[in-house]
């Protein structure tokens, strides 16, 4: 029924998971970051995904741009260690000057390796 329907928000997130699966099947190391909690105003809702490969190439978004750089480098660490990590970003974070959310919200991001 959806055939031919205009591309939509939710299906964009689906594309991130598809891309992650494709990368992994192609033999690349992949990590997946997922927004698991948000407080206050935050640009991307819970369940937003970001997939990162071993070269730091990424698709998707967890914040609309504010913290992607930091999440990508954490994701590459998780790829190497294989251990999942919970990251938190917000105005109270000491890195706020560099990677805080301009909108003043706080978000928690779960990062895991795609095995």
């Amino acid at each position: 029924m959806a055939d031919g329907n205009v591309a939509t928000g939710p299906s964009l997130d689906e594309d991130v998971l598809n891309e992650a699966a494709k990368w992994r099947k192609g033999g690349r190391n992949v990590a997946l970051a997922t927004v698991v909690s948000t407080w206050g105003s935050s640009p991307r809702p819970i369940g937003s995904h970001l997939a990162v490969d071993e070269d730091g190439k990424f698709v998707g978004s967890v914040s609309g741009g504010c913290i992607e750089g930091a999440v990508v480098s954490e994701a590459m660490e998780v790829m190497n260690s294989g251990k999942p990590k919970v990251l938190e970003y917000g105005v109270t974070n000491e890195l706020a000057w560099e990677v805080g959310l301009a909108c003043g919200g706080t978000i928690q991001v779960f990062v895991e390796k795609v095995e």
């Binding site: 689906e14 998971l17 598809n18 992650a20 699966a21 992994r24 099947k25 997946l32 895991e112 390796k113 795609v114 095995e115």
Partner: peptide, 14 residues
């Protein structure tokens, strides 16, 4: 996430 879990999720969505 296991590859198998990811594939099943994508199958379910499809």
């Amino acid at each position: 996430m296991k590859q198998h879990t990811l594939s099943r999720l994508l199958e379910d969505q499809a």
